[in-house]
């Protein structure tokens, strides 16, 4: 009886999760299918999972004319993501570890110092003035790397929580008695223990870098430094601008015949998303393990 009830519950459990996953994945499948659907078919038959006529026009449009650019964009994106993630994770660890030490004087002030950045920001114009006038990052690789993304308060808080909850104080003391310095403690004890969390955060930071188009929009005008998201986002935002009232007012729209169509926009989404989905299973292995122990304040 009990066995039967258990089985029954398991079926319901899986059913619930399968429905949930279905809801998550179906809209994504719809984009993929639409990106391969013939434009006219899309018009006449509407959006469908089983289009009558397939077409790779959208992809040839993107990769045909600007194929080299997209490829170059991938190179820029990968470079930025790798360097950015590595630098960012080092900074995060270096900040979070001292913050996790209950005995650190002024610990709360530093915690507030970090948290405060999550609430207030000075806005785009002052940031832009500073980064371009003082640091001259406009149209450099650094423009994609440095502003906003290098250190994030939320990740520091997560990392700190992980350290406080998983690394026993006794362990730290044992290392100290053995004569280890703070640096050896961090590199020999803390970092190996925190590997799952580090890879988790690395994934999130990497995702942030990969998906970022704002830095490119604000700080880059030279196509040499366009990341793939920049190129794709430009395609989309060109459409949005040209269909805005501002454009029509100044008569810009009179010659805009070769704007990307619906299918192209959908394939833009697929091209931007694909590498993440492919990299995801690799990170995923560590992802849950990482948060598992870290939590936010577990």
């Amino acid at each position: 009886m009990n066995m039967k009830k258990m089985k029954y519950a398991t079926v319901i459990l899986h059913l619930a999760l399968i429905i949930l996953c279905f809801i998550c994945i179906v809209p994504f499948l719809l984009i993929v299918v639409s990106s391969f659907t013939d434009e006219t078919t899309l018009m006449i038959n509407g959006y469908s999972f089983f289009p009558e006529k397939l077409s790779t026009y959208a992809y040839t449009y993107i990769l045909g004319g600007g194929g080299v650019k997209v490829l170059h964009g991938y190179v820029v994106s990968i470079g930025v993501t790798l360097i950015g993630t590595a630098t960012s994770i080092i900074l995060t660890i270096l900040f979070a570890y001292p913050l996790s030490r209950r005995d650190l004087p002024l610990r709360n002030i530093f915690a507030f110092f970090v948290f405060f950045t999550m609430l207030f920001n000075g806005g785009l114009v002052p940031s832009y003035m500073m980064w371009t006038k003082v640091f001259h990052i406009k149209n450099t690789f650094g423009a994609l790397l440095v502003p906003n993304l290098l250190l994030n308060a939320f990740y520091i808080i997560m990392m700190r929580t992980y350290f406080t909850t998983t690394i026993p104080t006794e362990l730290l003391e044992a290392v100290k008695i053995d004569g280890g310095s703070e640096v050896t403690t961090l590199s020999k004890v803390i970092i190996p223990l925190a590997k799952p969390m580090i890879s988790t955060l690395a994934f999130m930071i990497g995702l942030g870098y990969w998906n970022d188009w704002m830095n490119g929009l604000y700080y880059v005008t030279d196509s040499k430094y366009f990341s793939v998201q920049n190129i794709l986002n430009r395609m989309l935002s060109d459409v949005q601008f040209l269909s805005s009232a501002a454009a029509t007012q100044s008569g810009i729209s009179s010659v805009t015949s070769n704007l990307p169509t619906t299918g192209v926009r959908m394939s833009v989404a697929v091209i931007g998303l694909l590498p993440i989905l492919m990299a995801y299973p690799f990170f995923q292995k560590y992802l849950v393990k990482g948060i598992m122990i870290g939590g936010v304040k577990g």
Partner: peptide, 9 residues
């Protein structure tokens, strides 16, 4: 990155 631009407030 965060505090100096706050002057913009």
């Amino acid at each position: 990155n965060n505090y100096i631009p706050m002057g913009g407030l």
